[in-house]
Structures are given as C-alpha cells and as structure tokens.
Amino acid sequence: MIFSGVMFSLIMFLLSDKAHCRKVDCKSECCSLVEGFPVRLKELRSSYSEIQNFYQSTDDLGALIDDTVEHSINSPYGCHAMNEILRFYLETVLPKAVKKNQFKTPIDSIGNIFQELKRDMLKCRNYFSCQKPFEISNIKNSYEKLEGKGVDKAMGELDLLFNYIEKYLASKRVKHY
C-alpha cells in the first residue's frame, strides 16, 4: 500500500507542470542562440577537456580572467564584454596557442565556436540590450606582461570563461513560469 501511494505521488509529480521541461518556441535567431547554447557549451568543454591538463599544469600565475570579467559579462554591458573577450581569444590567444603546441584540433574547435558566438552576439545586440563598450585593456596589459606565459595563462582559464559565458547566456533565457 505504501509503495503504491509513493508510486502514485511520483507519477502525479511527473505529470505535473513542475516536472516538465518545456521546449521554448523561439521566434528569432537570438532566442535560438541563447536556448541552443548548452549544446555549444558542451562542445566547448569537450574540446577543452582534451587540452585542459596541459595548460593548467603549467599555470602558476595569478588570475588573468578574474571576477571583474564576470561582473562585466553579467552587467548591462555584457554583450560588449563578451565581444571583446571573444575577439581577444580569437585574435591573440588561440592563434598563438595553435603555433605553440600540438593541440590544433581542439583549439580550432574552440575557435570556430567562439567565432560563431561572436558573430551571433553582434547580430543580436538589441536582444541583449547592449549599453556600453567593455574595456578589455586591463586583461590585454596583464597578458602582454606575462610574455610567453600569457598564452598558457589565458588558455588555462578557458573553463572559467566558459562558466561566465554560460551564466550570461543563461540569464537571457526565456523564463518558464
């Protein structure tokens, strides 16, 4: 009897609205970008897992991507911050990382997703309510001071950047209430 009561309660919960994952019916590319990002994030993390140990094992330096970056990404200027960070990785970090070691395939995969994300973020500026450009000069200055170790540092912190991007895009998801 107790088992059937528990089973009945479980079945009722699973049939309730609270247990259902609702598919969001996106009517714009921007909504699709946000709602589809978990798949891209999984691909980013999978590619990064192939190189993460290498970069993090050589990282004995202070943070390059710190909580000010997270704050900027989660501010009203977040889309500009994202654009600047993605540009920094695409133009500065990833090309040097490819030249520096044997990890061309996972780095190229990360770069391709970053390029698509940057393109899509620019198309969706209005969707993200961008307000003001992000200032990336502090990160670039720190990176340049690290000289050859800058690439290792920036690559070693990609997982942190993925978390910031995920949090930002998740904050833009359609609420299911």
Results as ranks from 00 to 15, higher is better:
residue 71 H to M: 15
residue 71 H to P: 06
residue 72 S to V: 02
residue 74 N to C: 09
residue 74 N to S: 09
residue 75 S to R: 07
residue 75 S to C: 11
residue 76 P to T: 15
residue 77 Y to A: 15
residue 77 Y to C: 14
residue 79 C to P: 12
residue 80 H to R: 12
residue 80 H to G: 07
residue 81 A to L: 03
residue 83 N to C: 09
residue 83 N to Q: 08
residue 83 N to V: 08
residue 84 E to K: 12
residue 84 E to F: 00
residue 86 L to T: 00
residue 87 R to Q: 13
residue 87 R to G: 06
residue 89 Y to L: 05
residue 89 Y to F: 09
residue 93 V to K: 02
residue 93 V to T: 05
residue 96 K to P: 03
residue 96 K to H: 14
residue 97 A to E: 03
residue 97 A to D: 03
residue 97 A to C: 08
residue 99 K to C: 05
residue 99 K to T: 12
residue 100 K to R: 12
residue 101 N to H: 10
residue 102 Q to L: 11
residue 103 F to M: 06
residue 103 F to H: 12
residue 105 T to G: 10
residue 105 T to L: 15
residue 105 T to I: 11
residue 106 P to N: 13
residue 106 P to H: 01
residue 107 I to F: 06
residue 107 I to S: 01
residue 107 I to R: 01
residue 108 D to A: 10
residue 108 D to G: 06
residue 111 G to W: 00
residue 111 G to S: 11
residue 116 E to K: 13
residue 117 L to H: 03
residue 118 K to C: 11
residue 119 R to N: 11
residue 119 R to Q: 13
residue 121 M to A: 15
residue 121 M to H: 06
residue 122 L to M: 08
residue 122 L to C: 07
residue 123 K to Y: 02
residue 124 C to W: 01
residue 125 R to F: 14
residue 125 R to M: 13
residue 126 N to H: 11
residue 126 N to W: 12
residue 127 Y to T: 02
residue 127 Y to A: 08
residue 127 Y to G: 06
residue 128 F to N: 01
residue 128 F to I: 13
residue 129 S to G: 02
residue 129 S to Q: 15
residue 130 C to A: 10
residue 130 C to V: 11
residue 132 K to L: 13
residue 133 P to Q: 04
residue 134 F to I: 08
residue 135 E to R: 08
residue 135 E to W: 05
residue 137 S to E: 11
residue 138 N to E: 09
residue 139 I to L: 12
residue 139 I to A: 03
residue 139 I to Y: 04
residue 140 K to M: 14
residue 141 N to C: 02
residue 141 N to G: 02
residue 141 N to T: 10
residue 141 N to E: 15
residue 143 Y to L: 02
residue 143 Y to F: 13
residue 145 K to Q: 14
residue 146 L to E: 07
residue 146 L to A: 14
residue 147 E to C: 05
residue 148 G to W: 05
residue 149 K to G: 02
residue 150 G to D: 04
residue 150 G to Y: 00
residue 150 G to A: 00
